[in-house]
Design a protein around this nucleic acid. Structure first.
Lengths: 130, 130
DNA sequence: CACATTACTTTGTCTGTCAAGGTACTATGG
DNA sequence: CCATAGTACCTTGACAGACAAAGTAATGTG
């Protein structure tokens, strides 16, 4: 392969990724772990240690709250719920990501916004379906 | 503003950014510093300490080589030149960035590739200029 | 009955960024 | 003539996030 997502490229995004999963509804650690792998199309695994570290951080910042599930049988599950503050934090982080993408495209690829480029290519060259 | 590029969002990209500047030709520390600010459209400043740390790292990995300029008057300047290895490293890093962008768009925005989306919108809704 | 899976968690290490501090020279306005 | 800003280089130490490694404990399966 050769093309992977390094630790450094993911850094600073884990909180946002977790909050995004919780926007779909309450969930617990191990399920969130699996959902992230699935969401990425099996391209990325957020390690468990990273995940639980992030839970502590997000709880402390009141972006999420936790409660134990009432599983009578089987192992206990700790559920997490997105708070209003967490929702706001997510919204701001998505804006930051979109902004960072544009700036990094300039700095790495000397590119304008990729959407704009796609548009320009279309308007100049007409629509070619593959 | 509120929308800025945090340390964590840039982490892992500084080497690539520097190598990209050097693709345009040899340059020295302070000039590279200024060029990066300009390239970003004054949206991002790569701090000098970070820059010089990166130079040491990139030299050690043989991605760049350095030599003193022959300024007879004025302060001395240390120039950096991109090596073949550095060029390869840059090429791989851009692939990684493009890949990471796609995966992160899925994980943060639940989105497919933004280019694909732009295309889909166009094909469905027709071309609306602004 | 061993092994995989579910489910939770902590500790210590590593690495990149950058604030803070430093040196030295040049140009400019008061 | 001197203070200040700008050019140009550099190092050290602090900090924070990711994660390997290690652990607990239950359930399911071959």
């Amino acid at each position: 392969m050769g093309t992977t997502i390094s630790t450094d490229l993911i850094r600073g995004h884990t909180d946002t990724i977790i909050l995004n999963v919780l926007r779909q509804g309450d969930s617990y650690g191990y399920e969130i772990y699996k959902k992230i792998i699935a969401l990425s199309g099996n391209q990325y695994e957020l390690k468990e240690a990273t995940l639980y570290t992030a839970f502590r951080r997000l709880e402390q910042e009141e972006c999420i709250v936790s409660y134990w599930g009432d599983e009578t049988q089987g192992g206990r599950r700790k559920y997490y719920r997105l708070t209003d503050k967490g929702q706001e934090f997510y919204a701001q982080n998505t804006k930051d990501w979109i902004f960072a993408k544009e700036v990094l495209d300039k700095l790495i690829l000397n590119e304008l916004n990729s959407d704009k480029l796609a548009l320009e290519n279309l308007l100049e060259g007409g629509i070619n379906n593959e």
